[in-house]
Amino acid sequence: MHYSIAELLSAPWAILPERLAFVTALLRSAVGQDTRPDTTPQVRIHAATNAARRTPAGNGAIAVLRFHGIAVQRTDELGEALGLLSLARFAQSFRAALVDDSVAGILLDVDSPGGSVYGIMELADEVWRARGRKPVFAVANSLAASGAYWIASSAAEFYVTPGGEVGGIGVVTAHLDMSQALEKAGVKTTLVSAGRYKLDGHPARPLGEDARKHVQSRVDEYYGAFVRSVARNRGVALAKVRNGMGQGRLLDAQRATREGMVDDVATIDMVVRKLAQRIGEGKAANASRIAAARQREIDALARQPSTVARRAAARQRLIELLSV
Rank of each mutant, 00 (worst) to 15 (best):
W128T: 11
G58E: 13
G115E: 04
P206D: 06
A225Q: 15
E209V: 06
S217Y: 02
G114H: 02
L301G: 07
S29G: 15
A185H: 07
R315M: 10
A88V: 07
R278T: 10
S86H: 06
R131N: 13
G224N: 13
V64C: 08
D220T: 14
M245I: 03
V241K: 01
W150F: 15
A97H: 03
S306W: 02
R133Y: 08
T75S: 03
H214M: 11
M270G: 15
D210I: 07
R95D: 14
A237N: 04
A61Q: 14
S217P: 00
R36M: 08
V139A: 11
V219C: 11
T55S: 13
P206G: 08
D100I: 08
G164P: 04
R315L: 12
L238T: 14
G115R: 01
T267G: 14
H214N: 12
A96T: 13
A309E: 15
L251R: 06
R133T: 13
A148L: 08
A211M: 09
V99H: 14
A14T: 09
G224S: 12
K184M: 02
N233F: 14
T161S: 14
F90L: 15
E183P: 00
V187I: 15
P135G: 11
V219T: 12
G248W: 06
E165Q: 15
A47E: 12
V187T: 08
F137W: 12
V43W: 12
A293T: 07
G186W: 01
V219F: 10
L143E: 10
L191A: 14
D264K: 10
A293E: 13
K283Q: 14
T35L: 15
G167N: 05
R196H: 12
T257S: 12
I319T: 11
A155L: 09
E297V: 14
G201R: 01
G201F: 00
L321G: 10
Q42S: 12
G114Q: 04
E77Q: 13
A124P: 01
G195N: 08
A266V: 07
G147E: 06
P37C: 09
H46W: 08
S116E: 10
A61C: 08
S29A: 15
E7D: 12
A285F: 02
S306P: 00
H46P: 00
T55G: 01
L207E: 03
G186C: 00
V43R: 11
G246A: 09
D220Q: 14
I169F: 05
P17G: 13
S153Y: 05
G280V: 00
L123I: 13
P135E: 10
L321C: 12
R310P: 01
L26D: 07
T173E: 04
M261K: 02
P203H: 05
R74M: 13
S146K: 00
E80W: 00
D263G: 09
R95C: 04
G79E: 09
L8I: 02
M121K: 07
L321D: 12
D200T: 05
A6S: 10
S217G: 08
L108P: 01
D125Q: 15
A144H: 01
A174W: 06
A302N: 11
G60P: 01
A285P: 03
L275D: 10
V171P: 01
V265G: 05
E209N: 03
F158D: 05
D269R: 11
L82G: 04
M261N: 07
